[in-house]
Design a binder for these strands. Structure first.
Lengths: 344, 344
DNA sequence: GTGAAAGCGCTAACAA
DNA sequence: TTGTTAGCGCTTTCAC
């Protein structure tokens, strides 16, 4: 009645190590895991045999036994885009340090694909799941059913107060940028941002306004402009701000780096010096843009990699049984380059 | 002597389904896998119970039994960068279609981290491994020992002729671009590229030269320039090409999109019209650059996502036992935007 | 100090 | 048609 043995091809089993070392399989296990009481001699012999055979324990079997797989799933809705990637990088780094592996899943905002990935991850018995979004706005909850698998939402949030969500502090980032401008002596600060439907746009604007208030500067509604996230919009906005008869801004806080680059290009082309005449700050610290800008762009960094690392830490804790909930916003930082100049 | 049962928390086992359906556990298995002979009635009853309990088979156990894990490892040396990501995206897509999951590992060109990741992946008994690089130049082989786990190198290669390596056809891409320029009637085509130590630079130049020869155009050594991969270098190169007394090019084939954007900016700023006076082609089709360019950039797309998908397909075949070896170069394609204009 | 064996959850061969 | 059971590779308890 011997069932056909379907070995993991090319891999040495503990049984083989034990047999070579002429000990029982249980003893071999103890020797290799440094557990229990064993004579030094046996232990060394087993270890030597294991090394000789190139033994590598089968995590699948271990996981099955332990009831923990030491894997987590990471579901991205930003495809493999610019926001998700730094987050994933931090996450992977944090988890790899604790020798957990991460399954990468790409859902690209398709609920069906997302659901399929969740199913598959649950089948793989991941110890936890991290979900990222393309934008920080609220989304529907992940359906992990009764599995009890912990979930962390990064750069995305749901309306369940029991859920844990990690976001960049957009508002704080904007304050950082605008306070910097005010400190440099700028008095008429404009704001050129993206589509108002983005929560990030509203938060950054709110930060802009409160920083100005804090510095005792007036907020001119006509100098707060919304458009799309493109360079072209940045150039258009400069025409609007500088084209009329009105007093002209001496600084522009932009909703992202693309807009900022458009702004800087347009300013240069109409003969306004950056930063001498107008200081410009961006948002995102997207290197390829910020560094290629002329002059290089001072901009707000959302520290997404850190956000990912923090997500990893939190997930580990959730897995360990600790409770975390609510929306947490992590600080941004200001990366100073040349586009704001020195204090005037 | 009962060992403490350490259940996968929150998950229903087949045993529980079977007991609810009042059949043996073997029967339940058959019912759910649609295998063997079973009465319609029992089958349906089991399936109903499984659904009711939210049963989801434990892939860990299945894998252990089958000797195949249905997971693969993807090791990136480009961190989570611009080349690796489209590749990963294609790979993940291809594998997800076959319900295989991928472990993402980031080695960032650190051999030690890479080795650790390989160890970990082997422990997880992945069925195969894909390695990507930040550049296509040769690298050291992955140490998978005697495990027999198949490996595919994408956007990277090693010198073992038995290894399978998938690369973009840089030379062919360059031919595409330059033939396009020649077809549009351009006669004096310059080439501004990156550091010569990159294999890609040498291949693209070779494509440039052969396309020109093919079109019966002269190759002027002084119009083939190497620098770094930046916009700044693109601008410098324009000064070099247009600053002297020499005859000036009517087209520039650039080694990447950043250089191309620098070239376009510099041309505009010195009053040369693109594409009327000078046509420009880039390489990479990096959207954020190519589309923001004024005018939008015609450029070569390496089809990295396809490359990743192909890597997935090949890996599947290797896993199934088919043999693949050697260096395979997949075609690039030309994405036509406005920077070359219409035939003159 | 070492060996025997149960059990993690599932599949498949065989018996009934 | 259905039930029984060995076994995938490993850990751990218990007996010796």
């Amino acid at each position: 009645m011997s069932v056909q043995r379907r070995r993991m091809r090319g891999f040495v089993t503990l049984r083989e190590v034990a047999s070579l070392a002429e000990v029982s399989i249980g003893t071999a296990s103890k020797a290799l895991n440094g557990a229990g009481k064993l004579s030094e001699q046996t232990r060394e012999r087993v270890i030597a045999c294991a090394r000789r055979l190139g033994f590598r324990p089968n995590d699948l079997a271990q996981s099955l036994h332990r009831g923990q797989s030491f894997t987590v799933g990471a579901i991205s809705n930003d495809s493999f885009g610019r926001f998700a990637m730094p987050i994933m990088e931090g996450l992977e780094e944090c988890l790899a340090d604790r020798s957990m592996s991460v399954f990468m899943c790409n859902a690209t905002d398709d609920p069906l694909r997302e659901a399929r990935h969740v199913e598959s991850l649950l089948g793989k018995r991941v110890d936890g799941i991290v979900v990222t979004g393309r934008r920080a706005d609220p989304r529907a909850a992940l359906q992990v059913h009764a599995s009890g698998v912990p979930v962390v939402y990064v750069y995305s949030q749901i309306d369940d107060p029991a859920a844990l969500s990690l976001l960049p502090d957009d508002q704080g980032g904007a304050v950082l940028a605008c306070a910097h401008l005010a400190r440099l002596g700028r008095r008429r600060i404009a704001h050129v941002s993206g589509p108002e439907r983005f929560e990030a746009v509203r938060l950054r604007r709110s930060g802009f306004q409160s920083a100005l208030a804090q510095a005792g500067l007036p907020v001119d509604e006509r100098m707060t402009l919304c458009g799309d996230w493109s360079e072209a919009w940045g150039r258009d906005a400069v025409q609007q701000l500088f084209g009329g008869r009105r007093r002209v801004p001496d600084a522009i806080f932009c909703g992202n780096d693309q807009i900022a680059r458009g702004v800087v290009d347009a300013l240069r082309e109409r003969g306004a010096a950056v930063p001498a005449d107008v200081a410009v700050v961006g948002f995102d610290n997207w290197q390829i843009i910020a560094e290629a800008c002329r002059p290089p762009l001072t901009t707000v960094d959302m520290n997404l990699k850190q956000l990912g690392r923090e997500a990893g830490r939190r997930l580990i804790e959730l897995i360990a049984g600790r409770k975390h909930a609510g929306v947490h916003r992590l600080p941004c930082s200001l990366v100073v380059r040349a586009s704001c100049g020195a204090p005037t």
